[in-house]
């Protein structure tokens, strides 16, 4: 089994009275794309900041490439490519100056790859960053993060606020990075269809806790969406094991369940429900079922 690129163990973090992370543990292995999913303010950016050493792990531990990113900032940051949520770049630099400056910090900088990306994105090297639109800033930041062929690509909300063309560019860069040997990518996103399309492995965070983790295909095969028709209108459904959420549309209910579908069918049958359709749930449906307002999964 390949050595873990990232190991987070029982990481907790509090800001004032808010618990941003609560006993979070996860591992990241090379060769895979990891999707980090969660609602706003649930801990995604806090987790990513811990991986970069921008926050010191006060409870629990964080290891990137086997090292503590706070104690070994040089070794860790050299092998990581990072695009921040705010696209934080020096406003006064030109794009070519930014790339030239970043290149000095990463010995594996590939200038031909950087030039190729510049041309694909259609960016003018001589423009200053403060003159760029949001999408172009993301593109410039992405080139700076990916051109040195990092072992770990960390993208915090890379597609937020960007048009479809730029989003495709970003996904393309992620694929190209991971296609090389021994690389991994972690990207957090609100756009669940993107995560569904582009992840091998998913981490779902809610209120600082990891509520779901696993191989994406397995998750989708496990979670099913059932359309259930009742003879009489039901106000509420009694709690049934493995049912994550239940939404009512007239006489039909949409139920998302995890795992034992047959058992759920039988339980529903007992209370007079007939399952008219079964299919695998999409990531969006799983997400809303687990952390949305109709969620019945009250994991303390």
């Amino acid at each position: 089994m390949p050595e873990n690129m990232v190991e987070v163990h029982q990481l907790s973090r509090q800001f004032g009275t808010t618990r941003a992370l609560d006993g979070l543990s996860l591992e990241v292995q090379p060769g895979l794309v990891y999707g980090l999913v969660g609602a706003n303010g649930q801990g995604k950016t806090t987790l990513i900041k811990h991986l970069l050493g921008l926050l010191r792990a006060k409870q629990g531990s964080v290891r990137v490439f086997g090292m503590d990113p706070v104690k070994h900032p040089v070794n860790v940051l050299q092998r990581v490519g990072y695009l921040s949520e705010e696209r934080d770049l020096p406003e006064w630099m030109r794009i070519d100056e930014l790339l030239r400056y970043t290149a000095a910090y990463h010995p594996k900088w590939d200038q031909s790859y950087a030039d190729e990306l510049l041309e694909t994105f259609g960016l003018d090297k001589a423009r200053k960053i403060k003159e760029l639109s949001k999408g172009m800033r993301a593109q410039a930041g992405l080139i700076a993060a990916a051109a040195h062929r990092p072992e770990l690509l960390l993208l915090d909300e890379p597609s937020t606020g960007l048009d479809a063309v730029v989003r495709k560019d970003i996904l393309n860069v992620i694929i190209r990075t991971v296609a090389d040997e021994g690389r991994a990518a972690i990207f957090s996103s609100h756009l669940l269809d993107e995560v569904e399309q582009m992840s091998d492995y998913v981490f779902m965070i809610d209120q600082g806790k990891l509520v779901l983790r696993g191989n994406l295909d397995k998750i989708k095969e496990q979670h099913h969406l059932l359309s259930v028709r009742f003879a009489t209108s039901q106000e509420t459904l009694p709690p049934i094991d493995d049912v994550l959420s239940a939404e009512q549309h007239g006489k039909t209910w949409s139920i998302v369940c995890n795992g034992a579908t047959q058992k759920v069918r039988e339980s529903l049958g007992e209370i007079g429900g007939e399952v008219t359709q079964t299919r695998n749930a999409s990531l969006q449906e799983i997400f809303v079922a687990r952390v949305g307002r109709n969620s019945l999964s009250l994991e303390e």
């Binding site: 970069l52 040089v74 860790v76 940051l77 705010e86 934080d88 770049l89 020096p90 910090y105 990463h106």
Partner: peptide
């Protein structure tokens, strides 16, 4: 401190 400055791979 800007995130850009904070993620320099250079010792403090």
């Amino acid at each position: 401190l800007s995130v850009f400055d904070a993620t320099r791979s250079m010792p403090n």
